[in-house]
Computed example of a mutant assay.
Amino acid sequence: MEAEHLVKTWFEKWDEGDFLHLPIADNFKHTSPFGTIDGKHAYLNLVQENMDKFLGYTFEIHDGIYKARQACVRYTAKQGEGFALDVSEWYYIRNNLIEEIVAYYHIGEIRQARQLSNPE
């Protein structure tokens, strides 16, 4: 299965709330600003225990770069009326399954020491 089709299947499963049938390998690894989750079982358990934070999103795909065994997708995930998250994710594929995802997004306020000054 080509990378673009596999990534589209990933988003379709999330749209349907069918996280138990995500196209991920048994040794799946997901890295995000929250840390790394190792293994399909651990990932699905985390989703199961936190469904309110994982389900009910709509996805607006902005860009996608697809190669034979990897992809990068930039999208906005929206949940309800008041929550939107801009995400860039790298997908790594082996044996027609997603083996790894590395996700980049902002998860909180910028610390005072890291804020840019605004010259006037």
Rank of each mutant, 00 (worst) to 15 (best):
E12T: 13
Y57P: 00
D26I: 04
G35A: 06
H30N: 12
E120C: 04
N50V: 10
A113Y: 06
A3R: 00
I98G: 00
D18Q: 08
K8D: 14
H106Y: 07
K67A: 14
K53W: 07
F11I: 02
Q79L: 14
R94V: 11
E120M: 05
Q79V: 03
L85T: 03
Q70H: 14
P119D: 03
T76L: 03
A84F: 03
I61P: 01
Y91D: 00
T58N: 13
F34Q: 13
V7S: 07
G35I: 06
E89H: 00
A113M: 09
E60F: 04
V47A: 11
W14I: 04
N27W: 01
I93H: 04
C72E: 04
G80M: 08
T36K: 03
Y104C: 12
G80N: 11
S32Y: 02
N96Q: 14
W10D: 06
A25C: 10
I24Y: 02
Y105C: 04
G17T: 03
R69F: 11
A3E: 01
E49P: 00
Y92G: 04
V73Y: 12
A25W: 03
H21R: 08
R111V: 04
R94I: 08
N45K: 15
V47Q: 02
P23W: 10
G56L: 11
A42Y: 08
G56H: 06
H41A: 15
E49K: 15
G56M: 09
D86A: 13
P33W: 12
F59V: 08
K53F: 14
R94N: 08
E109C: 09
L44G: 03
A113E: 15
I107E: 11
G108T: 10
T76M: 08
Y92H: 12
S88A: 15
A3Q: 04
E49C: 02
T36D: 08
I98A: 05
Q115R: 15
S88N: 03
Q48C: 06
E109T: 13
P33R: 12
C72S: 14
A42G: 01
L85R: 07
Y104P: 00
E89Q: 13
G82M: 09
G39D: 02
L55V: 08
L46Y: 05
W14A: 02
P23E: 11
I110L: 14
C72P: 00
G17L: 09
Y104R: 03
Q112H: 12
N50A: 10
H5R: 12
E4Y: 03
L46F: 13
M51V: 14
H62N: 05
M1P: 10
Q48H: 14
G80L: 09
D18C: 02
Y57C: 13
Y66A: 06
K29C: 11
A103D: 06
N95E: 15
T36G: 09
W90D: 04
A3V: 07
T36A: 12
T58H: 14
T36H: 03
E109M: 13
I24D: 02
P33D: 08
